[in-house]
Structures are given as structure tokens and as C-alpha cells.
Design a protein around this nucleic acid. Structure first.
Lengths: 106, 106
DNA sequence: TGGCGATTTGGTTATAATGCCAAATAATTA
DNA sequence: TAATTATTTGGCATTATAACCAAATCGCCA
């Protein structure tokens, strides 16, 4: 694989990897509805705040979310207008697998 | 997070994780053009065959690709019709980041 | 200014992922 | 059948992730 192609797929993988965790996908889903502060997300997720904070840092480093400080809180928002098609695509794979295992049984 | 939601995002993450590697994204991209045998993919990638085989196993376990044996070769094909929108979405995040860092300099 | 709520960072430990080599399997052909 | 090509599997060393706790920061307000 030539270096340019290599670099391209590494860049793509960096973004995909940032999404590759249940908690981070949950965060993305939540933020697709409205912005949320860390404390709200922490409540919704039910993990240690530091854990949530680190997940948010991963998403932010990939450019998937941005944060804005207001008062003593930091609000995160989604920077991924295509989030619906992304989730839809991934769900379609899951559904396809489910369909196949059904037909295999029948 | 309730168990059902948890399970949903774990299923999503399983698929996303399977895509979260430069080599595997490259494979998916190649297979979006046409099916390929392991030996062809190995040539294109330039890694050990066993490494490529394991990447293919990851994609297959997630339901992203399927394989078909013909003669002494095994051909892999893509089972993800939405692959274009998936890549497009991820690329849009990358472009958005690039745009932002440009405007930050200007 | 002292303390409180919100958030990040450092440290540690446990688990998972990656890549190569060597060996096992399978189909093909000489 | 022996040799050959194609692919997978097991094993191992290396590196990366993830989660929690503790400690450090940052803003806000009494």
C-alpha cells in the first residue's frame, strides 16, 4: 500500500476508532438530540466522571464533538451532521446479520 | 443506562470496532469495488498473509463481509450496501476538522 | 478569600488488539 | 502420492484501551 493511501486510511480509522465504543456511541446519540454537559452525560451513563471525561476527550480529539464552557459547566455538542446516516448504516449491518441467522434456522 | 440501551450500543460498537482499523477499512474499500481473494488483498496490503486473514475474520464475524470458496481460493465480498455513505460521513468529519484548523490559522 | 460543584489529569491495573512466525488444513497439479 | 499454492490457526511479544481512584484545576458565590 502506498504511503498516501496508507495515510488516508489511517485518518479514516482514527475517526472510526473514536466511535468504536458503546459509551461513546451513546454519547454521540445523546448529543445528536441536544447538547449536554459532562454532569448530565455522567448521570445518563452511570460511570465515573473521570471515565466519561476521557471518552469525551477521545471524541473531541477526533473532531466528532466540540465543547463550550458556560459558567462552571462544559457543554458538549455534536459536529457530525451525517450522524443519522452513520447509525443507519451500522444498524443495517446488524439487521442483515439478524435476518441471515433467521433464514438459516428456517 | 438501562440494559436494553446498553445492549443496543454494544451491538453497534461491535460493528464499528470491526471497521476501526486502517487495513480493514482498506479492505472494505477494495471490496466495495469487487470481490477479492485473500491472496489479492494480501498483495495490495503488503502484510503477512496471516495478518490479513485475521483482519478478514474480524470483518466476517461482524457481518461486514462474507466469503465464498472457489477452487483453492477464498473470495471475500462486501455485505454493506451503505458503504459509500459510511465513508462519506467519516470523510466529512475529517474535512470539517481540516477546514477548522485552516480558519484558525487565517 | 474559603469552600463547593464541575471537570480534567495522573497513576495503576486489567484486558484487548495487533503483527509476525511457525504449523496445520485444504485444494491442485505434476 | 509428493510438491505446491492458498488460507487459517496457535502462540507469543508488544502496544493500546479502559476503568477506577486520587489529586489537581477552574469558576462561582457566600
Amino acid at each position: 500500500m502506498d504511503p498516501k493511501t496508507q495515510a488516508r486510511f489511517e485518518a479514516l480509522a482514527a475517526v472510526v476508532k473514536a466511535m468504536a465504543h458503546p459509551t461513546r456511541l451513546f454519547v454521540v446519540d445523546q448529543l445528536s438530540r441536544r447538547e449536554r454537559c459532562v454532569c448530565e452525560l455522567t448521570d445518563l451513563i452511570g460511570a465515573d466522571v473521570s471515565t466519561v471525561s476521557k471518552h469525551l476527550a477521545v471524541l473531541k480529539a477526533a473532531g466528532i464533538v466540540a465543547s463550550e464552557k458556560r459558567g462552571s459547566r462544559i457543554y458538549y455538542n455534536l459536529r457530525m451532521p451525517c450522524v443519522l446516516s452513520f447509525f443507519g448504516c451500522v444498524e443495517s449491518v446488524i439487521k442483515s446479520v439478524a435476518r441471515d441467522s433467521l433464514t438459516a434456522v428456517e
